[in-house]
Design a protein around this nucleic acid. Structure first.
Length: 507
RNA sequence: GGUCCCGUCGUCUAGCGGCCUAGGACGUCAGGUUUUCAUCCUGAAUAUCGCGGGUUCGAUUCCCGCCGGGAUCACCA
């Protein structure tokens, strides 16, 4: 292994919102880079002029930023290898394609997309797969079969052409993957991939990716497993260019699979099962809206944590990690080989863990936003106290209201099942006694209320459950919430008496 | 179909030849704590370690075959 500086890149194409599998790839790259004191680059692979989606690039940047990934070099950040958008690097690729032709590793092909389509259909009809390879390239419209003069003439004439890689015949390519170990493929099973096309004078993914990785001095390529089949081509390209000593090491990450059924995780799974597949809310140019983890109420650190554990583990029983810990602990050797089924249930648990760990003050300021929306004003000290009482029973900040509304407004209705259980013909009399007693409590704080109330109930033999359950129903309107005394303290003596009196009248 | 990758509880996973009567977490169920709900604590059930052969004194761990799943086969990335 050469001792060079660790430089990794996340290289998405802006064809739509970045999905969580992509975010995880970015994360693993980031952990790896930072662990080794290296650089994390963001390169936009927009060499497909057909599939550009407005807003996608901004979405990528915002998503990485939300996750806490700091980009060392990229479109926005700049860097010594700028530009980082492949469409802006257009001018540099052609010379590399030419170099391959000059060295006999590539050739011109003039076949029209239509004629190729037809060949594919014919092959399909015979139950075969059409492969553009060593067996047929001599018979195609290529610079291998045509005379030099003819090739020249065609190009000058303005015929459309592509440059294809001349895949060696019957050769075992030995490759090494940091996660999967050694992989060997025979080149005869591979095809002559298009590297460059005249239609838009742009390279295809393979050429652009390899030359940019080389030019940007990338030391490690960490990407999804879907790229594994093109690894031989990439390795061969490095060799054809004479760059093998600068070739990055490769690591192919396991895929994220559907929660149920077969196949990899897709947007449809989220729609079907009601969970987000994207980090951020996305509105497509057509107006279609997709949910995002951020908008669904997930904390970025919880999101990063749960993604980090899909396909990687520390080898210990720890499950909650800060970004710093993830960076320190991360290693490619501890990345799994097999695909990870995505479990939308466990994501909630992660958020709950992070929510409980947050300070009441932080949660209170978040919760105050929803209070403001309801035109409710409350002082911070009170809200913080309430948060402390209810945060363990929610997974998200937006669930707090449902667990705490009664601290701010009197119940508008009473839960029927609870009424049936906790309220009968004798209850009104009982509650009248309680109201009278509560009125006598002077220092109206929770411990005192609880102590005195229990004492009163016991000495008068009123039945703890009977009183408390009815009291809770009056105060909350349902069978939920923190301790009754805590509720009494926060809403105050007057409000307590009022709510119980109202219950007596209306139930 | 060709090529490549993968295969431990429902799910995420630990395990890198004996510590495994296979551990943890999510989820599920039961009990306890609590005046309620949630949290929390305890416990339970779910894994013939895909199957079949080897190698070995000994295989979840090594090898082979099979089966199953996945990825990929565009002038897309």
């Amino acid at each position: 292994m050469t001792n060079r500086r660790v430089r990794v890149r996340f290289a998405p194409s802006p064809t739509g919102p970045l999905h969580i599998g992509g975010v995880r790839t970015a994360l693993f790259n980031y952990f790896f880079a930072k662990k080794h004191g290296g650089d994390f680059l963001l390169r936009i692979e927009d060499t497909d002029s057909q599939r550009f989606v407005p807003g996608a690039e901004e979405y990528i940047n915002e998503s990485l930023g939300w996750c806490g990934i700091k980009i060392d070099e990229g479109v926005v950040e700049g860097g010594k290898h700028a530009p980082y958008r492949q469409s802006e690097r257009k001018a540099i690729y052609k010379q590399y394609a030419d170099q391959l032709i000059a060295s006999g590793n590539a050739y011109f092909a003039f076949d029209t997309p239509e004629s190729l389509d037809e060949l594919r259909k014919n092959a399909e009809a015979k139950g075969e797969v059409f492969t553009y390879n060593y067996q047929i390239r001599q018979n195609m419209q290529t610079s291998l079969a045509l005379s030099e003069a003819e090739v020249h003439a065609r190009i000058l004439r303005g015929d459309q052409w592509v440059i294809r890689f001349k895949m060696p015949e019957n050769e075992e390519v030995k490759m090494h993957d940091l996660i999967r170990g050694d992989v060997v493929v025979n080149t005869s099973t591979l095809d002559d991939k298009v590297l460059f096309k005249s239609v838009d004078m742009l390279p295809t993914y393979h050429l652009a990716n390899v030359t940019d990785d080389y030019l940007m001095e990338i030391s490690h390529v960490i990407r999804g497993e879907e790229w594994l089949p093109s690894l031989p081509l990439h390795v061969l390209l490095y060799r054809a260019f004479g760059w093998t000593d600068k070739m990055p090491q490769f690591a192919h990450l396991p895929l994220l699979l559907k929660p149920t059924g077969n196949g990899k995780l897709s947007k449809r799974d989220g729609d079907k099962m009601g969970f987000p597949v994207f980090p951020l809310l996305w509105k497509s140019p057509e107006g279609e809206v997709s949910r995002g983890y951020r908008e669904d109420g997930y904390f970025p650190d919880a999101f990063v944590n749960l993604l980090a554990l899909l396909g990687w583990n520390s080898g210990t029983e720890q499950e909650l990690f800060t970004m710093e810990e993830l960076i320190n602990l991360f290693s490619l050797e501890r990345v799994n080989k097999s695909g990870a089924r995505f479990d939308p249930e466990k994501t909630k648990w992660f958020n709950h863990q992070y929510l409980v760990k947050k300070s009441n003050a932080e949660l209170a300021s978040l919760f105050k936003v929803s209070l403001n929306e309801k035109s409710i004003t409350a002082d911070s000290a009170k809200v913080e106290k309430i948060i402390g009482l209810v945060k363990e029973r929610v997974n998200f900040v937006h669930e707090i209201w449902d667990q705490a509304f009664f601290f701010f407004v009197a119940p508008q209705s009473y839960d029927e099942a609870t009424v049936k259980k906790a309220w009968n013909s004798e209850t009104p009399e009982l509650m009248k006694k309680i109201v009278a007693f509560i009125a006598t409590i002077d220092s109206f704080n929770a411990p005192n209320i609880e102590h005195l109330l229990k004492d009163y109930i016991n000495t008068n033999n009123l039945g703890m459950g009977k009183v408390m359950n009815a009291l809770r129903l009056s105060l909350v309107g349902a069978s939920k919430g923190p301790g009754v005394a805590d509720i009494c303290e926060i809403i105050g003596k007057e409000e307590t008496i009022e709510r119980v009196s109202k219950a007596i009248k209306s139930l």
